[in-house]
């Protein structure tokens, strides 16, 4: 396998221009929602609101003000995390979702049949159906560009290099330096998803945040969906056993006297 590639998003230099959103749509030829005819969301300058099948990049705007002109306006360009342990990839029943040689996670649109299990499996709400293809879609980390040595469309377009693309190992070093710089300036900066020992084995798209992950719409402890499999499955088996036994007991062949009482016993 080639070296693991991914994104480091430094939210402190994001200017919320949304070039990444459009560059992504241009390269991947994704449509605008309802042909572009939409209503104002009222949620700051965010009118696309979330990642989905036709928004593979999304810029979040967070207004934190104590009073007029007194506060800060956080912006973050969000994208598929290309998890090292990817829930979508685990549950996909068609094999459409694969891990590539760049350690990225890609949905092969010609294999996907639109069952949507991956949508519910993703702890970050990244995936959704693209109404044009009828399949689940998300960021491919421009797999087609990567294969010929081109940078992904979004990070290439990003005017302030808030989105940086590169080898994960190198990006981590860079990110730690930036955190140190910010901390020396008194900014409470932290990395999210940069720790290979952390949740999901680390994220191949990780972030520098200056507030709690929840503020940016990120789960604090993202998990694989299969974490629930054993417990839920076990309890199901147990309840199946109980109900099966009850049924065998209740419906088995009985003595005539019991039958003659008619209706059996209410337990």
């Amino acid at each position: 396998m080639a070296e693991a590639m991914g994104f480091f998003t430094d939210t402190t230099v994001c200017i919320g221009c949304k070039a990444c959103e459009v560059a992504c749509k241009e390269w991947n030829q994704l449509p605008a929602e309802n042909g572009g005819v939409r209503e104002l969301s009222g949620d700051s300058y965010d009118n696309t609101r979330k990642l989905d099948g036709i928004h593979w990049r999304h810029v979040r705007f967070i207004e934190q003000f104590k009073g007029p002109y007194d506060g800060r306006w956080l912006m973050m360009s969000d994208v598929c995390k290309h998890c090292v342990q990817a829930g979508c990839l685990e549950v996909c029943p068609t094999g459409a979702i694969v891990r590539t040689q760049f350690d990225t996670v890609v949905i092969q649109s010609d294999v996907c049949n639109g069952c949507r299990a991956c949508i519910a499996a993703c702890p970050f709400g990244v995936i959704d159906i693209n109404p044009v293809s009828g399949t689940a879609q998300k960021c491919t980390l421009c797999y087609d560009r990567l294969q010929v040595g081109l940078e992904p469309a979004c990070s290439k377009a990003c005017p302030t290099d808030s989105i940086q693309f590169g080898a994960i190992a190198e990006l981590r070093t860079r990110a730690e330096k930036r955190v140190a710089q910010l901390k020396s300036q008194g900014v409470a900066a932290e990395l999210y998803g940069a720790d290979p020992g952390g949740p999901l084995g680390g994220l191949n798209s990780f972030y520098l945040l200056v507030d709690k992950p929840e503020v940016y719409g990120l789960p604090r402890h993202p998990e694989l969906p299969t974490t629930n499999l054993a417990k839920s499955g076990g309890l199901s088996v147990a309840s199946a056993a109980v109900l099966g036994l009850l049924a065998i007991v209740g419906l088995r062949k009985r003595r005539m006297d019991e039958q003659s009482r008619g209706g059996g016993g209410n337990v």
Binding site: L51, R116, F124, V126, R220
Partner: peptide, 12 residues
């Protein structure tokens, strides 16, 4: 808040 609240609905 549960971390599940950050996921997306599968339109089931």
């Amino acid at each position: 808040m549960s971390d599940t609240f950050f996921s997306g609905a599968p339109h089931w």
